[in-house]
């Protein structure tokens, strides 16, 4: 009797730990901003209904997403860091990079705006004012797309951000916003995450709309010559994203009445 119970237990655990692969799926490495915005929850079911392929999204920073892709642990990536993407393709990690959609970055800061960013004409001017005022600035510091963008913006104005006011967090977008809210610091955020973020406390947008804040997303297939990835299924997704059906789905996704991503 005891032996039979033990046998049943072993069977149960084995069954539990080995998932049934009864459906077609691809693994997509993408960014926290797209995942947190709820975009995938909206468009993946539409894609699945049309093609019968489900998409398993691993949401990490762009840097890690590209690393996962390069290791062959995802079948495709959807990220937002143009320079790193070009490198990814140049290194032979990925193929067939395509522009899918875009939104923009916004500068978020405390409502009372101690650095006076609200009066700035360009994002460069805004960043200069933050640096001059030595107002607290929370940097992602995690090699994500947003972090890379922020570093570019500092480089554009010729400032090397250092000092007690510049706080490198090494955290995802959401965690960075939580921290910025607690410290009443400025930070750079992608609009999608900002719109879906609930714990704003005293934060609000202090600058937006500069062309320099453009935030393009690309889809790249993981190179099938490097790793045995599901390139055929991934290509269906890759093609669908830029097809009319995919672009329509992206444009239809709204959060609290705001459209979060604009299809290319």
């Amino acid at each position: 009797m005891r032996r039979r119970i033990l046998g049943a237990l072993v069977g149960l655990f084995l069954a539990a730990s080995v998932p049934a692969d009864d459906q077609k799926f691809i693994t997509l490495a993408s960014t926290t901003s797209t995942e947190h915005s709820g975009l995938f929850e909206f468009i993946v079911p539409i894609f699945q209904a049309q093609t019968g392929i489900s998409v398993r999204v691993v949401a990490v920073g762009t840097g890690q997403a590209l690393a996962i892709g390069c290791n062959g642990d995802a079948d495709a990536v959807l990220v937002h860091a143009p320079a790193a993407e070009q490198q990814f393709v140049a290194d032979g990690c990925g193929i067939d990079r395509r522009a899918v959609m875009f939104n923009d970055f916004v500068v978020v800061g405390p409502k009372d705006d101690p650095a006076g960013v609200l009066g700035a004409d360009t994002v460069a001017e805004g960043f200069e004012r933050i640096a001059q005022a030595k107002a607290p600035f929370a940097s992602r510091g995690d090699d994500s797309g947003t972090h890379k963008k922020e570093l570019l913006l500092w480089a554009d104005v010729g400032i090397k951000p250092t000092g007690a006011w510049y706080r490198e967090l090494g955290a995802g977008m959401g965690a960075a916003l939580n921290t910025a809210a607690a410290m009443q610091a400025y930070t750079l955020a992608d609009r999608a995450t900002w719109l879906s973020f609930s714990n704003r406390q005293g934060l609000s947008i202090v600058f937006q709309g500069d062309q320099a804040l453009h935030n393009p997303y690309s889809s790249i297939l993981v190179n099938p010559n490097r790793h045995p990835v599901k390139v055929d299924l991934a290509r269906v997704w890759h093609d669908w994203l830029v097809s009319e059906a995919g672009q329509t789905a992206i444009s239809q996704y709204q959060l609290n009445g705001h459209q979060l991503f604009t299809p290319n």
Partner: peptide, 19 residues
């Protein structure tokens, strides 16, 4: 990882990997 020694098992990003 597919780039690692046990990559061919395809266990990454499954509950088995978490176990």
């Amino acid at each position: 990882s597919r780039a690692g020694p046990l990559g061919s098992l395809g266990l990454l990003f499954t509950p088995a990997a978490m176990v």
